[in-house]
């Protein structure tokens, strides 16, 4: 009996949320959402298409079509990238729509092709001497 009373007392101390707590919680949630959006929501600058380990970088600002053999066609249009014609049975990549934010990817598993958006700043730590 004594124990239950103690537990009740502890529960009363902790559980009821005060208005102020709710304000702080809301503030924290808003803050984290803002941070997430600013860090991960940046529109990309470049797109890297990798096929069999060979990567090619393209400018997102320039509309073009990139045909990868007769397997699929990657389309850059209006700062976004999508897969147009995929000659694979599942067509998952074709149906996954357009990507344009940094680190967003489209993967075509059957052909081993990946399309990844970057901020175009990668490799800035590279220096050449000689």
């Amino acid at each position: 009996m004594v124990n239950e009373k103690k537990i009740d007392a502890v529960k009363r101390e902790i559980s009821p949320l005060k208005l102020a707590d709710i304000i702080v919680l809301t503030a924290l949630i808003i803050l984290s959402v803002v941070l997430l959006v600013t860090v991960y929501g940046k529109t990309g600058e470049k797109v890297i298409v990798t096929y069999y380990g060979v990567s090619e970088e393209y400018d997102l600002g320039q509309d073009r079509e990139i045909a990868i053999e007769d397997k699929l066609t990657v389309c850059i249009s209006g700062g976004a990238v999508y897969v147009k014609d995929a000659q694979c049975p599942d067509k998952i990549c074709q149906n996954s729509g357009a990507v344009k934010k940094v680190n967003e990817t489209i993967v075509c598993a059957p052909f081993g092709i990946t399309v990844r958006i970057t901020d175009g700043k990668g490799g800035g730590n590279k220096v050449v001497t000689g």
Binding site: D119, K121, N125, K126, V128, T129, G130
Partner: peptide, 14 residues
């Protein structure tokens, strides 16, 4: 690199 400090990568010419 935009988030943290990383090592530089220095290549020597052949």
């Amino acid at each position: 690199d935009g988030r943290k400090f990383v090592d530089w990568e220095i290549s020597v010419l052949q």
